[in-house]
C-alpha cells in the first residue's frame, strides 16, 4: 500500500511538463476563443505560441496564468490548477499592453511589485539590468518610449525568477537589436531551467523558438520543433508550413477516428 507521502513523490516525479492544457474551451461572448485545445509546455525550452491576431493566443495565455474564466477543460501549471494561490510566486506574466504604473518611475514600479512579491530589494536592480533599463531607472514611465515601457513590464515579470514565464507579444514594435537581445535573454532563462512561453503573430519569430505551438481559430494546428515542422510539411519557412497545414486541413478527407 502506498503511503500519502509516496503518492505525492510519485506524482511529482510523473509531472514533467510545466503546463498541461487538456481539452480547453473558452467562450468569450458568442465566440469560442479557445475551442478544444490540448497542449503541454516543457521546462528548459522557449515555446513559441504563434498564430494570426484574434486566433485565441491571448485567451490561452490568460488561461495558463489563471486569470481567465474557463468554459470547460483543465489547465495545470507545475502540477497545480492554473491560478492556484501557491503559484502566484512562481509564474511571471507579461500582458500585451504594458501593465505598469505610468505615473511612477521605472525603479518605483519595480520596487513596488518587488515588495508585493516579497523579494529582496536588490532583485529590482538585477531585473532592471536584465532588460537594459538601468540608465532610465529614475524616469517616470509616462515619458518612456513604447518599447521601454514594455521592457519595464517585462522586468516586473522577471522579479523573483519565476519557474514559468508567460509573455504575450513582448517583442512587438521593438528595435531589431533589442529584439535579438530579448530572445537571447529568454533562452538564457530557459537554460537556467525555466519554462518560457512567448506568443507572437509574427511568423519570423518562430525560428527563434525551441518548440512551436501553431494556433488558428482557437485550435492547435501543430506542436513541434521548427525543424520537424518544416521537414514534415516540406516547406522552407514557418509561414509556408502554416499555410500547408491549413490547406491540408481544408481538403476533403476520409473521416478518421
Amino acid at each position: 500500500m502506498l503511503t500519502r507521502g509516496t503518492v505525492r513523490v510519485t506524482i511529482q516525479h510523473m509531472v514533467k511538463n510545466v503546463v498541461e492544457v487538456c481539452d480547453l474551451v473558452v467562450r468569450r461572448g458568442r465566440v469560442r476563443a479557445v475551442d478544444g485545445l490540448s497542449c503541454s509546455i516543457a521546462p528548459g525550452v522557449v515555446t513559441g505560441l504563434l498564430g494570426p491576431s484574434g486566433c485565441g493566443k491571448s485567451t490561452l495565455i490568460r488561461a495558463v496564468v489563471g486569470v481567465q474564466v474557463l468554459t470547460s477543460g483543465t489547465v495545470e501549471v507545475l502540477g497545480l490548477p492554473a491560478g492556484d494561490r501557491r503559484l502566484r510566486h512562481r509564474v511571471g506574466y507579461v500582458t500585451q499592453a504594458p501593465s505598469v504604473y505610468d505615473d511612477l518611475t521605472v525603479a518605483e514600479n519595480l520596487r513596488f511589485f518587488g515588495r508585493v512579491l516579497g523579494v529582496p530589494a536588490d532583485e529590482a536592480e538585477r531585473c532592471l539590468e536584465a532588460v537594459d533599463l538601468a540608465a532610465v531607472r529614475d524616469r517616470v514611465v509616462d515619458r518612456l518610449s513604447g518599447g521601454q515601457r514594455s521592457r519595464v513590464s517585462l522586468a516586473v515579470a522577471l522579479l523573483g525568477s519565476p519557474e514559468l514565464l508567460v509573455l504575450d507579444e513582448p517583442t512587438v514594435g521593438l528595435d531589431p537589436v533589442l529584439r535579438r537581445d530579448l530572445w537571447a535573454m529568454f533562452h538564457a532563462l530557459a537554460d537556467a531551467g525555466a519554462a518560457v512561453l512567448v506568443s507572437s503573430h509574427v511568423m519570423d519569430e518562430a525560428q527563434r523558438c525551441d518548440r512551436l505551438l501553431l494556433m488558428r481559430d482557437g485550435r492547435l494546428l501543430a506542436s513541434d520543433t521548427p525543424g520537424d515542422l518544416l521537414a514534415r510539411t516540406g516547406t522552407r519557412d514557418v509561414e509556408a508550413a502554416f499555410l500547408a497545414i491549413v490547406e491540408h486541413a481544408q481538403e476533403p478527407k476520409e473521416v478518421t477516428a
Binding site: 496564468v65 486569470v67 502566484r88 504594458p98 501593465s99 504604473y101 508585493v116
Partner: peptide, 13 residues
Amino acid sequence: SSGTLERLLAMPT
C-alpha cells in the same frame, strides 16, 4: 483598465 490590477491579483496580493 490598465491591467495593473490583474497583474497585482495574479501575484500574492
